[in-house]
Amino acid sequence: MKISFSINGQKKSVETDGDTPLLWVIRDMLDLKGTKFGCGKAACGACTVHVDGESIRSCSFAAKWAEGREITTIEGLGTAEDPHPVQQAWIEEIVPQCGYCQPGFMMATAALLDKVPSPTDEDIDNNIINVCRCGTYYRMRKAIHRAAEIKKSNTNT
């Protein structure tokens, strides 16, 4: 079936089986490789993207549900030249190690800050439940608090 949506601000149409996981539409049809495959079972969170501003795990999101919706991936969150506050904080705290799970974490964090601009440690624990095998959680927590500060100061200025 033909599925039309907006991704990172651009209108796109793809022709695929409606049950194809959105993850593979993003990675293999649209060549946006920042969204990662980890488990394919919505368990690890490496494939987290935003659909209409909400965090969703794209490995478990059938392409048909994307019709008419707005998708944001890590490539649309920000760029090296113009990073999103979450990416900026990740750079400042030097969070990534292997880096594979990080886009999923950053997408989940960006959604969290949209809902809870100044998350407490408990908010972070309840919302950021992706899996990182390198164990970068300690720096991520610092980066999430830092991102909240950056985002607030950006809004204020």
Partner: peptide
Amino acid sequence: EATTCNTC
């Protein structure tokens, strides 16, 4: 708040 049932 940001990781709801519909995340998965």
